[in-house]
Each structure stands twice: as structure tokens, then as C-alpha cells.
């Protein structure tokens, strides 16, 4: 698992997506992240401090390659724009639906 910053995550994600294009698939997972990277202590031990703010952990997997990034609250809009761009350019294998209007026109002409 490689932890990357947001923009290099998207760049690596694009690489993975290109590799997965022909005969494979890739998975992206979103989860809330509280900033702790150790397990919750057992009973009787002091609990981990409550985080002031939560972050979003994004993980991606293609075959055995795994990458991840942490998105902070202030980075969400920026990340979303990049991610939307990524989805548009890489998830383009879906069926296109013709609009009803153009169909009606085609039937007329």
C-alpha cells in the first residue's frame, strides 16, 4: 500500500485505469478516516483521543497494485474536481443513451 498525496494519487489512478482497460477492472474505496493508525486499545487502557476533524481515506486497487490517499476537509472540492475529471475520461465504456428528442427527429427525417 503506497500512501500518496491527492494529485499524485489521481495520476497513478489514471495509470492503473489504463492498464485495467483491456481485460481487468479496478476498485476504488472511500472510507472515513479518524487519523489514528493504531488499533483501538483494549478495555482498561486509555482510549485514543477523539480527533478534531475527520478525513476521507481513498484506496484504489488494480490486481495486486494498491494505492491510497487521505483527503482533508479543505481539499474535498479540489479532489472532487480531479476525480470527476478522472471518471469522465476513464469510465467511458458505459452505454450512451440517445435522447428522445433526437430519436423523434430521426424518425421524421
Amino acid at each position: 500500500m503506497v500512501l500518496l498525496d491527492n494529485s499524485s494519487f489521481i495520476i497513478s489512478l489514471e495509470k492503473l485505469a489504463t492498464q485495467a482497460r483491456n481485460d481487468s477492472s479496478f476498485t476504488i474505496t472511500f472510507k472515513r478516516f479518524d487519523g489514528h493508525n493504531k488499533p483501538t486499545p483494549r478495555e482498561g487502557r486509555p482510549p485514543l483521543p477523539t480527533p478534531e476533524e475527520y478525513m476521507c481515506l481513498v484506496r484504489a486497487q488494480m490486481k495486486s497494485k494498491k494505492i491510497s490517499t487521505v483527503v482533508k476537509q479543505e481539499d474535498v472540492p479540489k479532489m472532487m474536481v480531479m476525480y470527476a475529471q478522472f471518471m469522465k475520461s476513464n469510465m467511458d465504456g458505459l452505454k450512451r443513451v440517445k435522447k428522445v428528442k433526437s430519436k423523434a427527429k430521426a424518425a421524421k427525417g
Partner: peptide
């Protein structure tokens, strides 16, 4: 289908907003 992708995009943004708060 393609129109679903737009919805997914919006939904993902919403959820990410919820998560990082």
C-alpha cells in the same frame, strides 16, 4: 448507462464531504 455516471459523481462528492468533516 452514461447518465448514471453523472449521478455517481455527485453522490461520491456528497459522501466525501460527509466523511471529511
Amino acid at each position: 448507462i452514461m447518465p448514471d455516471l453523472k449521478k455517481i459523481e455527485k453522490f461520491t462528492g456528497n459522501l466525501m464531504g460527509h466523511m471529511a468533516s
